[in-house]
Amino acid sequence: MAEAPPRRLGLGPPPGDAPRAELVALTAVQSEQGEAGGGGSPRRLGLLGSPLPPGAPLPGPGSGSGSACGQRSSAAHKRYRRLQNWVYNVLERPRGWAFVYHVFIFLLVFSCLVLSVLSTIQEHQELANECLLILEFVMIVVFGLEYIVRVWSAGCCCRYRGWQGRFRFARKPFCVIDFIVFVASVAVIAAGTQGNIFATSALRSMRFLQILRMVRMDRRGGTWKLLGSVVYAHSKELITAWYIGFLVLIFASFLVYLAEKDANSDFSSYADSLWWGTITLTTIGYGDKTPHTWLGRVLAAGFALLGISFFALPAGILGSGFALKVQEQHRQKHFEKRRMPAANLIQAAWRLYSTDMSRAYLTATWYYYDSILPSFRELALLFEHVQRARNGGLRPLEVRRAPVPDGAPSRYPPVATCHRPGSTSFCPGESSRMGIKDRIRMGSSQRRTGPSKQHLAPPTMPTSPSSEQVGEATSPTKVQKSWSFNDRTRFRASLRLKPRTSAEDAPSEEVA
């Protein structure tokens, strides 16, 4: 009796068929016929556990003709996506030579605008209408194809895939403007070719909807975003200037109206006075309405000098805001240009540092100066060695804690006790272990408590650290204090090793 083939788990290929790579489910599931010992083939499952149809090819690079078809379809799909992405970037994010197409579109729109203006002049109306009709045909074809291509290429973005995504893309403001202008152009052409009475009025009214094509030149909205950011950044200043200017306008108009309503027919109503105030304070000055009385002229002159300053403030605020924003954008561009080279330089330096163990090129690091100058660790070890030599091999803490019996001779020589300023008595072995921070803190506390006492003391002649007598400086308080830590004499004296002298005989010792 033939044995059933062993159940295979995992992703390994079956024996005897090495080139074939078959994806098997996580659990080997066989058909009921196979479990019962029949000759049925096992049921194939996909990666998600769903059964595959009987005629479906197995996924994998070596699955025969199905694999070749899959490779061809995958390559075609990649080319399709690449083309779609390229078209989308050309239309929505132009760079380099892609601006040539947008310059061509701008020339078409500008020519249409010029011809629309010439069509309103009686001398050039006939020729402009003929040229404009031909140009409209060209623009309908160009913009119609462009609109379709834009909607198709938007599928390269995830949020615009599918018919719902394309509809979302078509609802964008600039796409809506394109659609309105396209419909208006078709209506103008249809009305112009019919030759009816309505054609002339339709051409004159709907052609100027094509002015909206100038708005579509900035599809990404960079200028509007820049203007919005400047207004938002200086909103408080703008609101303040406009508010005060509006108050000056209504008060000036009302007072001039009261002064001129009886003697001047131009100011017969408050609305006429508001019109005069707006034209005057905005420095336009049509001259259609002028005050005639001396009181009205004085009020107009005073409020004009006051109001023009507030009406001119928004222009200066926006101008300075634009300058600052442009400078910030230039700085951001320079930062973006330098970020990648800086990151590459840091990575290269780290690779060199991690692979080169000698690091002989590091001549400006802490390790280099640590090898030249005595390190703080060596100074600490030197302090501890000196203290243990004086205390008979014991550390200062051990000397303080060691009990001394009554009447027993002390094995240590008597030492002079010292007192730290602002604290109780402490171990004499710690007097010379006072660090730089303690010395600086002690000097600052003395300056806070009594700076007036220092200038009363007789001035001391500054001497070099080499000429100081070591026996005289029994305490860190003898170090000359200065008002600034930048004094080199104080810094050098604080680094010197001060020996400890006994109370009975204080021989001067120098520590090399």
Rank of each mutant, 00 (worst) to 15 (best):
I121V: 04
M1V: 04
A4T: 14
V24E: 05
H102Q: 13
I148T: 05
M340T: 05
L132R: 00
M214T: 00
I189N: 00
Q125R: 01
V103L: 02
G62C: 14
G34R: 03
P13L: 01
N129T: 05
S268T: 08
L274I: 10
E32D: 07
W97L: 03
L209P: 00
V188I: 09
L58I: 05
G70C: 06
G245W: 00
M206I: 00
T200P: 09
G228V: 11
I244M: 02
L115Q: 04
C69S: 03
G49S: 05
A36E: 08
R82L: 05
M206R: 00
S235R: 15
A187P: 04
N344K: 12
F110C: 06
L52V: 04
R43H: 11
I308T: 03
A312S: 09
S31T: 04
R82H: 11
Q210E: 00
G55V: 04
R204S: 11
S73T: 02
S73P: 10
L52M: 10
F99C: 13
G70D: 04
G16V: 01
P13H: 03
Q194H: 05
R44L: 14
E126A: 08
Q71P: 09
E22Q: 01
G162A: 04
T120A: 01
R7L: 12
R72P: 04
P341T: 14
C156S: 15
H292N: 11
L145F: 06
A56V: 11
P54R: 05
R171T: 11
V326I: 00
Q164K: 08
P173A: 10
I134F: 09
G34S: 13
P15H: 07
R220H: 01
A68P: 08
F106V: 08
C131W: 04
Q329L: 02
G38A: 05
R204L: 00
P15L: 02
C175Y: 00
I197V: 09
I105M: 02
I177M: 03
Y88N: 02
A300T: 04
F310S: 00
Q210P: 07
G228S: 07
T290S: 00
C69F: 08
I308F: 10
M139T: 07
C158R: 05
G39R: 04
I140T: 02
A184D: 00
G12S: 08
A4S: 12
T193A: 01
I134N: 05
G195D: 08
N85S: 10
V215L: 01
Q164H: 10
I180L: 04
V24M: 04
F143Y: 00
V151F: 10
M217T: 00
Y147H: 13
A187T: 07
G12V: 14
F182I: 09
S153C: 06
W163C: 06
A315P: 03
G38E: 10
R7C: 03
S74T: 04
H124Y: 02
Y243F: 00
R161L: 14
V87G: 06
P14S: 04
V24A: 07
Y88F: 03
A343G: 08
V114L: 05
F137C: 15
G38W: 08
V87A: 07
S253C: 05
L107V: 13
T200K: 15
V142A: 14
A304S: 06
G245A: 15
A170G: 08
A199V: 00
F174I: 14
S67P: 02
L212Q: 00
W242C: 12
I308N: 13
Q327K: 15
R219H: 00
Q84R: 06
P341S: 15
I148V: 09
T120N: 01
A18P: 03
Q71R: 05
I346L: 14
V90L: 06
